[in-house]
Design a protein around this nucleic acid. Structure first.
Length: 215
DNA sequence: GTCGCGATTTGCT
DNA sequence: GCAAATCGCGACA
């Protein structure tokens, strides 16, 4: 049975809030294995970071919707994937947030495997992309709200379907507040003061220990 | 056309 | 703890 996707409107809200509301939701990867059989892997999202348009660390900082480059994706429709390549060898997966025309994204930093029966490296934004075979060519601007796709984000069990109006205003958190911890973001040289990295408390799949957030 | 750097990971000291 | 690996993008000439 496939879980229902989160509606596109879920992502149209405030970026920092969406980063928190995504904790505990499911990332679903579907593909056909080398034997020709379809496989579905589900993962819980356990660590995210928020990037907003007025944030110097955001790729869209200082850009406008008219910008015609890679970061232009950040201004597009909420719920699209933004996959970028960095350090000459790594991909990172983001979800576009805010209304179309406004830039913002949530970086997916760590996943807890629910189905895989083999060891998986899903701690860290680059490792999870490698584990799920996510690259820029295949998944940049891929819609993450459509079910039965190679990659989409689904509601966790117990997270009820929401009206568009409720979502766009402020989608409810899935995890209780006391299960979410905020820390400084990792690996950035600007805007370090923002506590915009969010982790599930005591989850062993978090990319690095909470409280030692800075590099 | 050229140059510098990065939302990381890994391995070595 | 520190530096190498490695390359696309964007800034500048």
């Amino acid at each position: 049975m496939l879980a229902a996707p989160l509606p596109q409107a879920f992502y149209a809200a405030n970026t920092v809030h969406v980063a928190r509301a995504l904790l505990g939701q499911l990332l679903v990867r579907q593909w056909v294995n080398p034997d020709g059989a379809p496989e579905t892997w589900r993962y819980r999202i356990v660590e995210t970071e928020a990037y907003t348009q007025d944030d110097p660390a955001c790729h869209a900082y200082g850009k406008t919707p008219a910008f015609n480059g890679l970061a232009a994706t950040l201004f597009k429709a909420p719920g699209l994937a933004y996959v970028y390549f960095t350090y000459g060898m790594h991909y990172c997966l983001n979800v576009i947030t805010e209304a179309e025309g406004s830039a913002g994204a949530v970086l997916i930093r760590a996943l807890e495997p629910l189905d895989a029966t083999f060891p998986q490296q899903t701690q860290g934004p680059a490792r999870l992309c490698k584990a799920l075979a996510i690259d820029k060519q295949g998944f940049n601007e891929h819609p993450l709200w459509e079910p039965h796709r190679a990659l989409y984000i689904a509601q966790a069990p117990g997270y009820n379907p929401l009206s568009e109006a409720v979502c766009a205003a402020r989608p409810p958190l899935l995890l209780p507040e006391d299960q979410i911890v905020a820390t400084p973001r990792i690996g950035i040289s600007k805007a370090q003061e923002a506590l915009w990295r969010f982790c599930e408390v005591d989850n062993r799949w978090v990319s690095r220990p909470v409280g030692k957030g800075m590099r």
